[in-house]
Amino acid sequence: MARVLIADDDADIRDLVAFKLLQSGHEVTAVEDGMAALRALREQPPDLALLDIRMPGMSGLDVCRELRAAPETATLPVIMITARSQEGDVEVGFAAGADDYIIKPFSPRELSSRVNAVLNRVER
């Protein structure tokens, strides 16, 4: 049981991820862009953040960098969701401080397992 924030500009994907994570017993907050994500993260820090890289306005990478820059969110687990549209997205994601990444199109099952894996790693 953990609190997970999902930030993606595509509502269907937000719903998909929320559905799967809720089913896995997590509490889910879904936001539609980077600014909203950052706001939500500061208001009520979750246990893990799922950030889509490509979002209008503020990208997932920018959000991740902001999180890492602030002491209270510096260790917050982050999983980047990438369309791997550009070579090097993954490297850039890790450089920005992501803990893991998942490539679109992804399997909801795999997403759920990765979320759990990252959470377990953090708990240990």
Binding site: D10, I13, S85, P105, S107, P108
Partner: peptide
């Protein structure tokens, strides 16, 4: 990929 993610995900 974005719509495909939804398709593949919901099928699953």
């Amino acid at each position: 990929r974005t719509p495909l993610t939804s398709i593949v995900g919901y099928i699953e």
